[in-house]
């Protein structure tokens, strides 16, 4: 077993709302080994994005701890990169300058940063658009740039919060395949949040299934499908069996939560 790079221990997160305190995440514990690709799946409002934001250092734990590469996460760190659901590209910067932003902020010279950016632009296949501005790109292209921008600081950990959630189905499956390809070429541990079970099984080595109200981990599921993978795997019997497991679990949990809320 490779060494642990992310360890989430007994993490709880509580939000103050006008209706009082709400437990968004309830004593969640898991760890991720170096090089692993872990997907967190769950219905909206189950706290999966909150868990991810805490690993990113954007959110502070109410109790428990998040340790990345031996150090507790207290604020964003350049060794932990993040791709959001929206690309959030700097609209006043070209594709190249967006990607070069991180290296520049870490003190790399203009030419070093440019070289890093150009390498990544090549990797995401947007050579023709290096000097284009974000508003001229399609949603899928913008998200590619966002991924490249997050990779420019060579993070140990790449966090992805439903990065393909806002894309149309066709673009999404293209993006999934290129992420699978990309992943073989980078040396980063990935934690990927999605509500799409197909996406999770396709991409992940492990799937963490979360339930809502309060957010807890229901099941930690290994995905032993052969790599390299692509969207074609979705017809494989082993894939379908895994998917059935997940769906059954989520359905029974959904029924329980529903009964509970209608009884309460």
């Amino acid at each position: 077993m490779a060494r642990t790079i992310i360890s989430v221990a007994d993490l709880s997160i509580v939000f103050d709302t006008p209706q009082g305190q709400v437990i968004a995440v309830d004593r969640v514990t898991f760890s991720v080994a170096h090089g692993e690709f872990v997907c967190i799946v769950g219905p909206s409002g189950c706290g999966k994005s909150t868990v991810l934001n805490t690993i990113a250092g954007l959110e502070t734990p109410y109790s428990g701890a998040v340790i990345v590469d031996g150090k507790p996460m207290q604020r964003p760190r350049p060794d932990v990169g993040m791709v959001f659901q929206q690309p959030h590209l700097f609209p006043w910067k070209s594709v190249r300058k967006n990607i070069a932003h991180g290296p520049r902020m870490l003190g790399k010279s203009r030419s070093e940063a440019r070289a890093i950016a150009d390498g990544l632009i090549e990797m995401i296949g947007l050579n023709r658009f290096a000097d284009a501005y974000p508003h001229t790109l399609s949603g899928g292209m913008q998200q590619r740039v966002a991924i490249a921008r997050a990779l420019a600081n060579q993070p140990r950990v790449l966090l992805m919060d439903e990065p393909f959630g806002a894309l149309d189905a066709q673009t999404r499956s293209v993006m999934q395949d290129s992420l699978l390809e990309l992943r073989d070429r980078i040396d980063a541990t990935v934690v990927f949040v999605t509500h799409d079970i197909d996406e999770a099984i396709l991409l992940a080595d492990r799937v963490l299934i979360m339930s809502a109200g309060p957010g807890r981990i229901l099941r930690d599921l290994g995905v032993d499908l052969p790599r390299p993978r692509s969207n074609a795997i979705m017809l494989d019997p082993a894939y379908l069996a895994l998917k059935k497991d997940c769906l059954d679990l989520i359905r029974s949990e959904g029924r329980r939560a529903f009964d509970q809320s209608s009884a309460g």
Binding site: H88, W92, H101
Partner: peptide, 26 residues
């Protein structure tokens, strides 16, 4: 200013000064 831009800039290691001069101002 779009909170998403601020968060993205934070994740990329943007120091406070640059955040104010570049991301917030633009």
């Amino acid at each position: 200013v779009d909170r998403g831009l601020i968060r993205a800039a934070q994740m990329l290691g943007t120091p406070r000064r640059q955040m104010l001069q570049e991301i917030v101002l633009l």
